[in-house]
Design a protein around this nucleic acid. Sequence first.
DNA 1: GGACTCCCTG
DNA 2: CAGGGAGTCC
Length: 689
Amino acid sequence: MDSPTDLFDDAASQLHAFTPSLCTSELPGVPPQSNGGRPPATFRPPGYPLIHHLLQPGGAPRRIGGQLNAHNTNLGAQRHLESRIMEEVEERDGQVDQGMEGGEEGVMEGEEGLLGVKKRHSNVALMAEWSRDVLRVKRMKLESMVVRRDVETAEGDRRRERGREGRRREREELKEQLEEARERLQALQEKVWRLDGGEMEKESLSLLPNSPFSNFGNHKRREERQKEQEGRLERGKGGGLHIEGLMEGAGVWMGCGGLVRGEWDGGMEGGDEEAEEGGQKFAQALKLELGSAVARVIDRVLRFYTETTDFTPPSPPPSISFLPSDTGNDGGRERGHPADLAAALALRRSHDKRKANPLLGPPLPAHLPHSHPNLPLHHPSLSRPPPPHPSLLPPPSQPKDPASFHPSSSSSSSSSFPPPPPPPPPPLPLPLLHYSMQQLFSRSLHHPQLPHLPPSHKDYLNADPFLEFPPHPSSHPSFPPLPLLGHLDPSLAHHAHSDRERERGMRGDSGIRECLCLLNQPRVYSQEGLSPCHLKKAKLMFFYTRYPSSNTLKTYFPDVKFNRCVTSQLIKWFSNFREFFYIQMERFARQAVREALTRDNQLRMGRDTELYRILNMHYNKSNVYQVPERFIEVAEVALREFYSAIQTGRDSDPCWKKGIYKIICKLDSPVPDAFRLPGWPCDSTYRRT
DNA sequence: GGACTCCCTG
DNA sequence: CAGGGAGTCC
């Protein structure tokens, strides 16, 4: 963690372990056990994970941060711009010659134009966008250079014959084309800026005259500017860093510039073999330089925010800090450590972008008591075997139990409703630098330090006996996120952790854990009303408790400011849940009576039954929470009670359901502690990412 | 009387 | 899912 490159690498690796795209379902054909539910190593190899795509021969325009959230209005325009830029590069394939040298100069100056804008633009989010734009331009340049080298090699013989005169003509044509391209780029840039809210200063467009395809030559001017920039960077260290310093000081192209002027140019001036050799050298050096330069940029930006946040909190309580003060001397845990920040940034970003996405990874009840002490296993009116009833201990993974109760069991549709497959994982938001920085920091400031956690919130960081993993965590959508595991059950976390450690080259994740710890802390400001997220949580809670007390509700909705209205609304919700539950039970029980399904196993609610599907659809619509076995047991009890009452004619009594209600209300089980987490399950922090 | 629940209705 | 009436329990 000494060099910025290492730092960047480490942060990226940590991000890797928590990125939402790391879902096997997104990568068909990839054995889950081999990658732990994450993409194959080729997706982002160690070394420069985030810039790997930059170094692909074909440019591999896989946009790391391409998946912006829906409310980012720049997304479309930026993607468009990017693709157009790539087209520009491809258009020049086979045409680019030494004239590009001037184009490179244009890149440099274009960057400076960008940087000049950044200096005036304090918006953090935009800065991040800018940084990506800069990187994109650089990538484009890299690709054009590689393409140029290939073209040079292929056309070497021909060029030898044509001689210098032909090249001169080519160069002139190129200039024209480049000029044309420059204008198109300008138009695209203007579009982007307009989308940015139009608050860019006119000067921001200074990029355009200095675009990558103009201003041939003029090295001297550039060097002077570099010196000037370095000077500014030094000054910035004294009085607060400027964004320009971050970017310029990274010296992304300084090393390459030397190569361009030296070996590359020399090769071009000399023989063709020399040119080829120089080109290869240049390409190699370019790769290396680009990798480290990007790392430096990231590092500087992160460092910038680390330092900036030291003095910019709007009204932070005295005790507030990003990380606990007693986290030891681990470098990765240092307050505001860039790696930590990078990880947290990505988490916050994914959080912000996937508010509406389904949760992933809630627990299953582990060590679940398979028979409740008050569980009515056998109704006297039913000619069933005495308890323990075998149907209350169903094999959880029965693919298809022909004897299971199917609501429309007479039809072939009875088993045609397996639980729908989990929805595809949300797109991968990976960029490190965006408005999420602001989100992260503003939110972090609202989080008290860990030591200030109220006892009740420290408790739920402990192991939870009702947490359980699916048989194949790596491939199951309910696999909880590592941080949650770590908080809830260290032993469970260990298993997942070890896999991730292997993948990440045995790097520690203490830093990211701290960040997640931070994000998991309760909000200082309670919410007045109930949100759809609360409704979602309430529905999932129904899997465990049908009759929660108001105190229980208060416990499990810590981020809600309770008043009479909110309390009664929550209670009303559960009343509605029960109503739906009982209606379904009665409905399917009556159907069973009609079809004379008297055998025990015909009154079961397997996971492949219609009844299960309906209940799952109602309480777990996104189907990303595995219905706990306990709930299935309770539902089966209710089903049998209804069946028994109907079969024996007790349903003629107006109060015939009351006995059933009384039985069911005794079957409540504890709600997993994960439900106590504020923001759960909607907060992406708690999802498998 | 307050809290809670069920039932009905929209 | 919410509103409201009616019933029950403490």
